[in-house]
Write a protein that binds this DNA or RNA. Structure first.
Length: 561
RNA sequence: GGCCCGUUCGUCUAGGGGUUAGGACGUCAGAUUUUCAUUCUGGUAGCAGGGGUUCGAUUCCCCUACGGGCUACCA
């Protein structure tokens, strides 16, 4: 039975690299009918950030990453928050001391800092004689230095006992064996060997009574019966320690398998993508908006930037993984089906925001017009733009509950929006682009592109436009003389013109009068849209209806000439 | 500095001892179109360098370079 965990620390928002780690855990779990666990690693009380835990859960939920065991979901291996498991760790720390794998250390952080400083100076002087630029050897609490520091290895047993009894502050350190080669297996990287002489005596248990990541992680993974540890490459350097810990506890037989994922790098410049990048890079690094409770700053997320949840997951999945085919668009189910850790690459990947947009565009095309229309209307209601939905109708529009297409919107209006979406979505990357591609369906242009006028407008144009108006007037929905009147009865009686009928009407007129197709069409577009953009002129006419088309032509002719 | 990991077009990547080194994004050009865009077609561009091993290395090994990670009583 496969059991994996995603174990973030609630020190702030999760960034996209963290989400990808969660995703790979999830895909692996589902692929193997295993269990996905969310464990909150909050052993550093100093770095606790309010709201981060909720943020993590909401982000994963948005991505469709389902948790089987966790704080909210429960499970037999709880609690799932390390601060709630505090009582557990002490006994394991004690166990290691009893078995000689760990020891008490009484050096204060200040003392150690001072030693580090001095070491730097001493090395610097020494280095001067040899090589000016030689860097100092960083101090390490290790197999050689530990014998000259204040700990239960150097102090008389008596003194250790009285120190502990007096409540002196202490930490527990792992006693890294000397000169031992640790051979590790990583699913992604293969065999990794490290000599223990290069590893220092890591703190396992802090003076505040909490374990460090290393202890908590190993103890919890063991207790929670984790079978595979899938985490970022930044943990690879501590793998030897963890492996030694399993050995020290006598848990080698049930030690999980490890897979260290390559990192996601910034698109330009150096380094891995980091939380601190915030919005500096010109694209979001967070899955959903993050409101920093300390500064009240808001950092943008993919959700709010307009990315579809499935597109975002797809983008993440292909950062460092592929199934060996040319396929690039995957649903979550397809990802689960195709996923394997063996096909995760070894090298870090730079994130390409341009390609991310392309992915979103692909999902735009894939989704139904109705789904896009709903999102579009939601977007418009927050922008306070768009269809002339009456005030009382609009009330029903923005509310969260209203998932199905807005019942308060008249059906013809809804159909019209869907039609508009179908016309412009192929040229949109995000739902918000749909407005900039289609606003002229909802409001008449007030300005007219000068360059088009300059290029296409001729003295004969007013007469030509007049002729076109005459061509269309027989199809008015609202008779010119009538005032406000009931349009329902009129609508039922006359079928509105469709695009091909407009096309025939106008093209016939143009050819029979041997006019220039390009000029007339472009001027027509200019009248309707105000510039040279948008879908086919006849499609625009169909959706606008003859009354509006004529009104716009009249207004444009007046303004331009 | 030390330890560890990595290195195929600008980017994401496939491939793997003998290939015209494949795809995608981007970019450029052409075609289509009444416009912008889409779309289509085509082009551009890559095995970090040096040594081995081998009949033959981009592929295997070593070194160097470069990139990245870690080096806290943070995770």
């Amino acid at each position: 039975m496969v059991r994996v965990r995603f174990a973030p620390s609630p020190t702030g928002p999760l960034h996209m690299g963290g989400v990808r780690t969660a995703l790979f855990n999830y895909l692996f779990a589902r692929k193997n009918q295993g269990t996905m666990i969310l464990r909150i690693e909050d052993t550093d009380q100093g770095r606790f950030v309010p709201g981060a835990e909720e943020y993590i859960m909401e982000s994963l939920a948005w991505c469709g990453i389902e948790i089987d065991e966790g704080i909210k979901e429960g499970g037999k291996f709880g609690p799932y928050r390390q601060s709630d498991r505090k009582a557990i760790y002490r006994q394991y720390s004690d166990q290691l001391i009893e078995s000689g794998w760990a020891y008490y250390a009484f050096d204060t952080p200040e003392e150690l800092d001072r030693i580090r400083q001095e070491g730097m100076k001493a090395e610097g002087q020494e280095g001067k004689e040899k090589e000016e630029k030689s860097e100092r050897q960083a101090f390490a609490y290790d197999t050689v230095t530990r014998m000259s520091l204040r700990n239960s290895l150097t102090l008389p047993a008596e003194e250790v006992r009285s120190l502990l009894a007096s409540g002196a502050s202490f930490v527990v350190r792992f006693k890294m064996p000397e000169n031992h080669e640790i051979i590790m297996q990583d699913i992604i990287r293969g065999e990794v060997r490290v000599s223990t002489t290069t590893i220092d005596d890591k703190v396992l248990f802090k003076s505040d009574g909490m374990p460090t990541y290393h202890l908590a992680n190993v103890v919890d993974d063991h207790l929670m019966e984790i079978t595979h540890v899938i985490r970022g490459e930044e943990w690879l350097p501590s793998l030897p320690l963890h492996v030694m810990l399993y050995k020290a506890f006598g848990w080698t037989d049930t030690m999980p398998q490890f897979a260290h994922l390559p990192l996601i790098l910034k698109p330009s410049g150096n380094g891995k993508l980091s939380k601190r990048d915030g919005d500096k890079l010109g694209f979001p690094v967070f899955p959903i908006n993050w409101n920093n409770p300390e500064t009240n700053e808001v950092y943008s997320g993919y959700r709010e930037a307009g990315y579809f949840d499935d597109a975002f997951v797809n983008i993440l999945a292909l950062l460092g993984w592929n199934d060996g085919t040319d396929k690039e668009i995957y649903s979550m189910d397809e990802l689960i089906e195709a996923f394997s850790l063996e096909r995760v690459g070894k090298s870090g990947s730079r994130f390409d925001p341009e390609k991310a947009k392309w992915f979103n565009h692909q999902y735009m095309l894939l989704k139904s017009n109705e789904e896009i229309a709903e999102r579009f209307l939601d977007e418009l209601s927050t922008l306070d733009k768009g269809p002339r939905v009456r005030e009382d109708d609009r009330k029903g529009l923005g509310t969260e509950e209203d998932d199905k297409n807005d019942s308060t919107m008249p059906e013809e209006e809804w159909d019209r929006v869907v039609k508009i979406v179908s016309l412009v979505k192929e040229r949109a990357e995000f739902v918000k682009d749909i407005w900039s591609q289609s606003w002229f369906f909802f409001e008449a242009p007030t300005t007219y592109d000068e360059s088009v006028i300059k290029k296409r407008w001729t003295p004969e144009m007013p007469a030509i436009l007049k002729e076109i108006i005459n061509l269309l007037s027989p199809f008015f929905v609202i008779p010119a003389e009538a005032g406000t009147l009931s349009l329902t009865t009129e609508l039922e009686e006359s079928e509105p013109l469709i695009a091909t009928e407009y096309e025939k009407l106008i093209k016939d007129y143009i050819t029979s009068n041997s006019l220039n197709m390009g000029s007339v069409m472009n001027i027509l577009r200019l009248c309707l849209v105000g510039s040279s953009m948008g879908p086919g002129v006849f499609d625009i006419m169909e959706l606008l209806g003859p009354d509006e088309v004529v009104a716009r032509i009249e207004r444009a002719a007046e303004v331009i000439s």
